[in-house]
Nucleic acid binder design. Structure first.
Lengths: 230, 230
DNA sequence: CCAGATTGGTATATAAATTATACCAATTAT
DNA sequence: ATAATTGGTATAATTTATATACCAATCTGG
């Protein structure tokens, strides 16, 4: 039984946030003292996490100024900072699992989603449309959209299951470049999901989320081929 | 960010094992020193876990002899020893999520399962047939069966997702009595799953696992009605 | 440009959790 | 009956994490 060191947890959390677009390359992380309040940790622990992140080459600390994100993508991270068995996980595996869980979730969400959550989805689509140039933001809003749907299902085991998969998904972003082509298609799929949820139309909601995920997988394959041929 | 105390982790682990049938009422838990080796913990930590379990009324410690399992079912456990948000989880929620994940998993398993895993399933069915009188054992073999299928899918995110749900499932056993009626039906469903996996027959494999889970849910509803009317 | 606020760097005392040993008394096994 | 095993107890050392305090570099607003 391994002790989960707090600063290691924080390292993982921050890597996930960086990978999922909360902080772009060159951006400054929140100040140490701010993270202390945010995560209820002492400063020593936060500093230990920062030290690890700098050793990993993920941030560069400047005294008196702050901690700045370096390029994270394509870095090889030690396994103890990665989700379990991350090496053996392909992007297709993640999409396959997401399809299973999210289809089940959106089916329930069609019956249970409330007007406030529908509004959230609407706002997120708007934000996505305004983030076509900032793909990191776009990705972040996309994930939030899916999180809202999962939570609207009201099914705790599904929520937990999705959480564990989202962990893999976030980290996979660290290793794959962002795909510009995805944006317009993705927005249209999300609009379809939203209107299907409004209409309580299970079939179309499921269809939309599956197509969206399949499209995401296709794009990633194309991107990888580019990487290989380059 | 909360520190996960090691002895609390062990308490959870042991409750899950008891609930999922590894130790029956009256059975003796492994000796403290044995658990130390098994989980790589110091004796002080194991003893702390034992102390918590005794306070919870789950075990009774006899000096010089051992720790003996008391009746666990229907006990109300403090939330810090339960999976996250366990209170808001119904058995139906768990079954719904399991259907989503296990259907996806058995579909992959039909293509990927190897002869050794098929043999494991065969042996587990045999064990189930010999455990009709010992429902705790039966439940344990049932879960092992499903674990083999999930692992045969070779999809790590699905494996992880199932793990998080299994946690809920194990604990739900603590609160519901075991259902004798389930046994014969369950065996037949598992046989159908095995033969479908052998034939690489995705449709029938999926059908069998869904019917099995639906049946499990039905039984639990009946059991609860009995509880209410009693 | 300057003054005050903010930021990372450093040191230290403290508390909590965990490990590692050792020995005892009760129970169990041979 | 004797040896092995088991839980009970005590203690010292180590590892983690918290809580403060103060410094120097940097940033910010007037």
């Amino acid at each position: 039984m391994n002790k989960e060191l707090l600063h290691t947890k924080l390292v993982r959390e921050l890597i996930a946030q960086i990978a999922s677009g909360s902080f772009a390359d060159g951006a400054r992380l929140p100040a140490e003292r701010k993270l202390c309040r945010q995560y209820n940790l002492s400063r020593g622990t936060v500093r230990q996490a920062f030290y690890d992140l700098e050793k990993l080459g993920i941030i560069k600390i400047k005294a008196g100024s702050g901690a700045y994100v370096q390029k994270v993508s394509q870095k090889k991270l030690p396994t103890n900072f990665l989700p379990q068995d991350f090496a053996s996980v392909s992007f297709s595996d993640i999409i396959y699992a997401r399809k299973a869980i999210e289809t089940a979730a959106i089916t329930l969400a069609c019956e249970r989603i409330d007007s406030q959550q529908l509004l959230q989805l609407e706002n997120l689509i708007e934000k996505m449309e305004h983030s076509k140039e900032n793909l990191l933001d776009f990705f972040k809003f996309d994930m939030e959209f899916h999180q809202v749907i999962i939570h609207a299902s009201g099914n705790m085991p599904l929520i937990t299951a999705f959480g564990s998969i989202a962990e893999y998904h976030k980290y996979s972003q660290v290793f794959s470049s962002i795909h510009e082509d995805e944006v317009d298609f993705a927005v249209s799929y999300h609009k379809k999901m939203l209107s299907a949820l409004r209409d309580r139309d299970i079939k179309n909601a499921a269809k939309a989320i599956n197509r969206h995920l399949e499209h995401t997988e296709q794009i990633s394959k194309i991107t990888k081929q580019k990487d290989i041929s380059a």
